[in-house]
Computed example of a mutant assay.
Amino acid sequence: MRYLLLAFVMLALSSSARAQPDWSSAREVDVRLSNFKFTPDTIQLRHGEPYRLHLVNEASGGHNFDAAQFFAAAQVSTADRARVGKGTIELKKGESVDIRLVAPAAGTYKLHCSHFLHSSFGMTGQIVVQ
């Protein structure tokens, strides 16, 4: 019983720490979506650091920021989870959105626009977490 209580307390403390990142210290990362490219097309992040991903669609039509594996592994703020959906953020012409998250484990995560033929036209990139 004593070990069960200790395990519960440890779980509660780790869940509490994970659920409460300090968004005031989040670094802003600007990503521009334009006709068939992301700028930058390689996004560099550090594992465990909080970020505010600022996405701006500068194109004449809609685009999206599709990074399903990245978003599944990252700790996305509770307030922003609905906007991320199933790992894709849709942006209409001229729209911008901010997504707060804590960078996941180190690795390289694929990024693309999943609109018809946009990836074929070069709208791809990667998110590199160190």
Rank of each mutant, 00 (worst) to 15 (best):
A12P: 01
A12W: 01
L13A: 15
S15R: 10
S16R: 06
A19S: 14
A19N: 10
D22K: 09
W23N: 03
S25L: 13
A26V: 04
D30T: 08
V31A: 03
S34F: 08
N35M: 12
N35Q: 09
K37E: 13
P40L: 05
Q44L: 11
L45W: 06
H47V: 02
H47E: 14
G48F: 00
Y51M: 02
R52Y: 00
L53G: 03
H54N: 11
V56A: 13
V56S: 14
E58G: 14
A59E: 03
S60C: 06
S60Q: 11
S60H: 07
G62Q: 09
F65R: 02
F65I: 03
A67C: 07
A68V: 13
A68T: 12
Q69R: 15
F71S: 03
A73R: 11
V76K: 12
V76R: 12
T78Y: 09
A79P: 12
D80H: 12
D80K: 14
R81S: 12
R81Y: 12
A82G: 13
R83T: 13
R83I: 14
K86F: 13
G87K: 13
T88S: 14
E90T: 08
L91S: 04
G94K: 10
S96T: 12
S96D: 06
I99L: 06
R100G: 00
